[in-house]
Amino acid sequence: MNLTLKIWRQSGPDAQGELVTYPVNDVSEDMSFLEMLDVLNEDLTAKDEEPVAFDSDCREGICGMCSLMINGEAHGPEVTTTCQLHMRSFSDGETITIEPWRAQAFPLVKDLIVDRSAFDRIIQAGGYISVKTGAAVEANNLQVQKHKADRAFDTATCIGCGACVAACPNASGMLFLGAKITHLGELPQGQAERDSRVVKMINQHDAEDFGGCQNLGECSAACPKEIPLNVISQLNRDFIKAKS
């Protein structure tokens, strides 16, 4: 198929950016979206133009490195990551607009690449269970009810990609935060720090310039790992309890 791409080009954080149009031809529907961009970049290089900078690493939908707003949707039209999106989701002749995540808390680095280190700092604030290496007890001394273990797992699948923030009109990081609070809060190991964790993480979230949550649900709809919206209610409950 033949497509027209409109891609955000910006040479650096302080430079002026713009959408630039590139036609691409003979795209196979078995290509992944990023492979389609690889082909474009090979062409640009051959023509002595600078290729488009974008992030990706595992290309298996698990590392959370890839991003991209595709026609205004975080990770594009399917419930998956950009690297797992395939061209069969598009049709011949389509125009596709490709932009970076846009959020105060994710400053732009170059072209389609943004800085998501705010997420690391939220984890630093309290997204862990404090246990010294070597100090752990025998694993099976600790029973975890299956439904709790399953819920902990479901919320631990967050890959830290930031699509929830990009999709949210307020650029809130509450889904990411709620996923971590729920993962650690469901487990018996996570109880000791449960109250302090939620307070510290929320404070850090706010300090990073993420917006507030208005329950619009765009985050969960965009999340490639289908983190449910109810982790935000869990987050709020834990927060109120910790404060009281």
Partner: peptide, 22 residues
């Protein structure tokens, strides 16, 4: 064996059976 103990203590959600064991 120590690795599993360590990871469970950190909150790694390994698969469990209905009895709650690994």
């Amino acid at each position: 064996a120590n690795i599993i103990d360590q990871c469970v203590a950190q909150g790694v959600p390994f698969a469990r059976d209905y009895g709650g064991l690994l």
